[in-house]
């Protein structure tokens, strides 16, 4: 064995370099976690086909259900895709690597930022798949370029909101398995909205919940933008809900990270 190659001491990594490294790391994880990646792509396809060909005929015999359901499936898949973040974050917090990051002269909280960016990339891919399959099975939109852009903007905001929420859940969870089961529970929220059936068809007491929960205005805003009968108030409600939850989740995340991974 040769003598140990000594290096001189260096200065700390810049914020930009730190973020770039953590984003690159999380993207690599996403690409290599084959099961999760396959699910992220297969789930939208399966749900799209299921809702169009199995449930669609019963819900809307006219065959237009596909146009109605696209925003719902986009959000359902985004919710599922974001929930992976909880597992990734919980794994980092429990397997010892966070201790190493914390003893390095960097802001270790950016490890979470890396997972959030990777989640956004994964979910935009899934959204692309949903829209692609939807077009193949008969979805048609008369939306302008700007309306598409608006819809995608709301989808991005929704993904970020859910991802930060799941990141906080991952931080709070005691293990990746626990994080995964918390995540599962949240995935039922879209069903209690106007995502798959109009809220008018629900019993009164559920209607009250469905119409006033955050997912409904998000769904209605995206649907309105894509199908051309937009009610502006839905957009404001969607933005408001997302920003409030996003901010709350971000604060929850930062606070939990500092409490758990800060000095004790």
């Amino acid at each position: 064995m040769t003598n140990f190659p000594i290096t001189t001491e260096t200065k700390a990594a810049t914020l930009g370099a730190t973020n770039a490294v953590f984003i690159g790391r999380s993207l690599r994880h996403s690409l290599r976690n084959t099961e999760a990646l396959v699910m992220a792509i297969a789930l939208p396809i399966m749900l799209m086909l299921l809702f169009t060909y199995v449930f669609g005929g019963a819900i809307d015999p006219g065959g237009d259900y596909v146009t109605y359901v696209v925003p719902g499936i986009i959000l359902l898949c985004a919710g599922y895709g974001s929930s992976i973040t909880a597992v990734d974050v919980a794994a980092d917090m429990t397997n010892g690597i966070i201790e190493r990051f914390r003893t390095m002269p960097i802001k270790s909280i950016h490890v979470i930022t890396g997972h959030v960016v990777a989640s956004l990339a994964r979910n935009l891919l899934a959204t692309g798949v949903v829209i692609g399959v939807a077009l193949l099975v008969g979805f048609r939109s008369n939306a302008s370029f700007w309306e598409w852009l608006g819809a995608i903007g709301i989808i991005v905001l929704f993904i970020l909101t859910f991802t930060w929420l799941y990141a906080a859940i991952g931080l709070v969870a005691s293990s990746p398995a626990v994080a995964s089961s918390y995540g599962f529970a949240l995935l039922f929220v879209p069903y209690l909205s106007s995502a798959f059936v109009p809220t008018e068809t629900m019993p009164n007491w559920i209607q009250g919940v469905a119409e006033n929960q955050p997912i409904t205005p998000v769904i209605e805003a995206i649907r309105g933008l894509l199908t051309g009968n937009l009610d502006n108030s839905n957009v404001w409600w969607a933005l408001g809900w997302c920003l409030v939850i996003l901010l709350g989740s971000y604060v929850w995340c930062t606070w939990t990270f500092l409490r758990k991974a800060g000095s004790r």
Partner: peptide, 29 residues
């Protein structure tokens, strides 16, 4: 001034040996 090798092995399971080292190199400036 310090470097810690903790009790539980703190390597990134999903990355290769080279990627682990390069990642820590970048994070160290």
């Amino acid at each position: 001034s310090i470097s810690l090798t903790g009790q539980s092995v703190a390597v990134d399971e999903m990355l290769t040996a080279t990627e682990n080292l390069q990642m820590m190199g970048r994070l160290s400036g």
